[in-house]
């Protein structure tokens, strides 16, 4: 199978994720879109690893998964905390920094 197809898929996934981050307001959905982008990156890394015939890309993909797992923990905790205090999961409500 042509490895380029994986790259196209990864680009598609990344685009969907990016558009989701920019356009959606629900924090959970935005969060999932970020995960989508991360995994698109992972897919690219693994594909490149396959194309180059070495393991560098796969190793970095592991690192990415570990970091992503940590990020999910922290990110979800923040979202829950915000939801508890503001009764809303909309990220546009959490725009206090501009003041």
């Amino acid at each position: 199978m042509d490895p380029y197809n994986y790259l196209y898929l990864a680009a598609l996934l990344f685009t969907i994720g990016a558009v989701g981050v920019v356009l959606r307001r629900n924090a959970i959905v935005v969060f999932m879109c970020i995960e989508l982008m991360l995994n698109a990156g992972n897919l690219t890394l693994v594909t490149f690893s396959r194309m180059n015939g070495n393991l560098n890309g796969q190793v970095i993909a592991f690192f990415t998964m570990v970091v992503a797992a940590c990020e999910v923990v922290v990110g979800l905790a923040i979202i829950v905390a915000i939801y508890r205090s503001r009764r809303s999961a909309s990220i546009d409500d959490a725009s206090l920094l501009k003041r």
Partner: peptide, 12 residues
Amino acid sequence: SGYVRSYAALIL
């Protein structure tokens, strides 16, 4: 603006 998505759009 304080909107995360506008920052994200800028980064993009």
